[in-house]
């Protein structure tokens, strides 16, 4: 019996090695170690041995079984690896062979710019306020220190709607009426930005649309000064346009602010060296700003001796066009997918 065990132990590895697939190996395993296998048969024959012989034969059987099992495991993993390699090789894909790309949408350039601007101001501690696009004369003009027949009304070409008395309800010409709403509905301290859509009686051309977008900022608190305005705009400028772009303020006139200023930034194309876009000046005019006019504060019930504030505003569309080199504002509003899909983010 010991001889038989030894023979199986010695021949087994060759038979295991000869198996060329996991399936063949499984058959060999059944022959040798299975319920009806050779070793199992020998084990059953041990009953006829004396205790000493049984002990010796049992040990030999165990040795043979263990070494065969190890050989099977090792061969199995070899064969499995080979079979996986074959399968994997057959599964090769050319990853540039793309059919049926998933559709990708896009945010409108105005939205992208809007979100970027708003995010910068949120980082500076501003909340974001909005208001209606159709406004009364009071919010759009009167409360902002632009009474009827004020020559400054000529600064805005206003579209009126057929509601109420003639020329009393209008499409807001700027986002400034939201300032009035914020001050009327809330209380200082106010640190808010007001992005929104505005309207002018203007014929569309490459740089004008009757409908466009602005963002406006308003701060009202105790002891707010022109220096705070200058510092806020400078902080915004470098945060939004990059650290190498700075701001400057020049005297200007708006009925709702005093002192008033034009807000310029270093030309973002030439960084201030002078180029075609900035007309060789090195500066780009971005918008207007100033200290909230005392009459405006009084109009919303705030005491100008106690509270002071500043406001600023600028166009949003031009920033969107500038960032991507779009030379005609009308392109943004046709809904042409060939335009929209160019700006996935």
């Amino acid at each position: 019996m010991i001889d038989d065990i030894k023979r199986i132990g010695a021949d087994g590895p060759a038979r295991i090695a000869a198996a060329t697939s996991v399936e063949e190996l499984r058959a060999v395993e059944a022959d040798l170690l299975g319920k009806k296998g050779e070793l199992t048969a020998l084990k059953k024959g041990m009953g006829g041995l004396d205790p000493e012989g049984r002990k010796v034969a049992g040990a030999a059987l165990n040795d043979a079984r263990e070494s065969l099992e190890a050989a099977f495991a090792s061969r199995r993993s070899e064969l499995e690896a080979a079979e996986r390699a074959t399968t994997v090789a057959a599964e090769r894909l050319d990853l540039t062979e793309l059919v049926d790309l998933p559709e990708r949408g896009s945010l409108h350039l105005v939205t992208q710019t809007w979100d970027r601007l708003v995010d910068v101001f949120i980082g500076m501690g501003f909340t974001v306020a909005e208001g209606p696009e159709v406004e009364t004369d009071w919010y759009n003009f009167e409360a902002l220190n632009i009474p009827a027949a004020h020559p400054a009304r000529g600064m805005w070409d206003t579209l009126y709607v057929d509601l109420g008395d003639p020329e009393t309800v209008l499409l807001r010409t700027h986002t400034s009426p939201v300032q009035i709403r914020v001050m009327t509905d809330g209380e200082p301290p106010i640190y808010a930005v007001m992005p929104g859509r505005v309207y002018r009686r203007d014929t569309a051309d490459a740089s004008h649309m009757p409908v466009f977008h602005q963002i406006e900022g308003l701060v009202v608190d105790r002891n707010i000064s022109f220096a705070d305005l200058a510092g806020t705009l400078e902080a915004f400028t470098s945060a939004y346009f990059g650290g190498s772009i700075h701001s400057r303020l020049r005297p200007s006139y708006f009925p709702f602010t005093e002192p008033s200023a034009e807000y310029d930034i270093n030309c973002v194309f030439c960084e201030g060296n002078g180029c075609r876009t900035c007309g060789q000046t090195g500066w780009l005019e971005l918008g207007g700003c100033g200290m909230v006019h005392p009459t405006v504060l009084t109009n919303v019930g705030l005491d100008p001796e106690e509270w002071s504030g500043f406001a600023f505003g600028f166009g949003l569309d031009r920033l969107a066009l500038m960032r991507h080199g779009v030379d005609d504002i009308r392109e943004m509003y046709t809904g042409d997918v060939r335009f929209l899909e160019q700006f996935p983010s």
Binding site: G125, P189, V219, I224, D228
Partner: peptide, 8 residues
């Protein structure tokens, strides 16, 4: 210039 600290 000096940027005010927002109350919010």
């Amino acid at each position: 210039g000096r940027a005010p600290t927002s109350a919010h």
